[in-house]
């Protein structure tokens, strides 16, 4: 493999990591917050798809993509609080409701999204941070959407807040032990509803990135399961916001391997290259997962790890 080819692939992977990772990042961060409070919302795929549609529609009608981002977040709050409220009823299973919300959210998005497939809505402007480079690929890879940095900022804030803030402590305690939280005078259901709603907001914003930045248009195949995968990445990232970022970047970079290899003429077995993110994630999990360590980091009230 010549240096040029290797450089092309590496630049593609860098670009892929930055371009593709943002929606994974937002959904995974939203889910981390929800799961830290002791609930699982498997339905963030629904938030992602609905967010994408709403963002595109609002941007199209108002001409302001940032309003679209906000509206996507609000649609996510709507779905998230629905999940949070329903799951606060006794004996209702949060995983099941999540899957139902996924179906509901995608259904609503597809139903109302028909008129927005064809028009072009104003998109979010990227920040051209690669101006110093002569390499067109590198310049493109460093055309970074502000939401990418927002995502990293959110992760840093969450990471700090979980460890150091009163709110973070309340969320973590609710997630680890309901009786302990009650003993402290915390209302676990309120904390969980709020966490799921905010988590839903973040997932909705992730959807806005899909339709308004990359790939940057609305259609029904837009997400194809990215929301579901991002929720799974939370377990991979062991409920740590910073590791969510790493996981999302890794996943994005791995996703760029397939197209990048084909672009330099290596295309035998492209189905496996295209499945690289899944294969890689599985191998890392098998290599790193030990019941003891992951169990230690998992929120105690989480039904998926009980």
């Amino acid at each position: 493999m010549s240096d040029g080819i290797l450089a092309t692939i590496l630049i593609s992977m860098l670009g892929g990591a930055i371009r593709v990772s943002t929606p994974f990042m937002f959904v995974a961060l939203g889910e981390t917050l929800t799961e830290k409070s002791g609930r699982i919302n498997l339905g963030l795929e629904g938030n992602l798809v609905l967010g994408a549609m709403v963002a595109y529609a609002v941007s199209y009608h108002t001409g302001n993509p940032w309003l679209g981002v906000l509206a996507a977040g609000v649609s996510g709050v709507f779905l998230g609080s629905m999940h949070g409220l329903i799951c606060s009823l006794p004996r209702v299973n949060d995983i099941a409701v999540g899957i139902a919300m996924m179906s509901f959210g995608t259904g609503v998005a597809f139903f109302f999204g028909k008129p927005y497939i064809q028009p072009s809505a104003p998109r979010l402007e990227a920040l051209p941070l690669g101006g110093w480079s002569d390499n067109a690929g590198l310049r493109q890879a460093l055309d970074i959407n502000p939401l990418f940095f927002v995502g990293i900022l959110v992760a840093l804030v969450m990471w700090w807040a979980f460890a150091n803030s009163r709110w973070g402590l309340i969320v973590r305690m609710t997630g680890d032990s309901e009786p302990a939280a009650r003993a402290m005078g915390v209302q676990p259901y309120q904390v969980r509803i709020a966490s799921t709603a905010i988590g839903g907001f973040l997932a909705g914003v992730g959807g806005a990135f899909l339709s308004l930045s990359y790939p940057g248009s609305w259609n029904e195949g837009l997400s194809s399961g990215q929301g579901l995968m991002a929720v799974a990445l939370v377990i991979f990232a062991r409920w740590n916001p910073l590791r969510c970022i790493v996981a999302a970047l890794l996943f994005g970079a791995a996703g760029a391997i397939g197209p990048a290899l084909q672009s330099v003429g290596i295309s035998q077995g492209y189905y496996f290259f295209n499945a690289a993110p899944y294969i890689l994630t599985l191998f890392i999990m098998i290599a790193s997962a030990r019941s003891s360590s992951s169990a230690r980091e998992a929120p105690g009230e989480l039904s998926i790890t009980k």
Binding site: N219, G221, G255, A256, G258
Partner: peptide, 8 residues
Amino acid sequence: SMPVREAE
């Protein structure tokens, strides 16, 4: 139909 991969 796989928009993200098409963009990539």
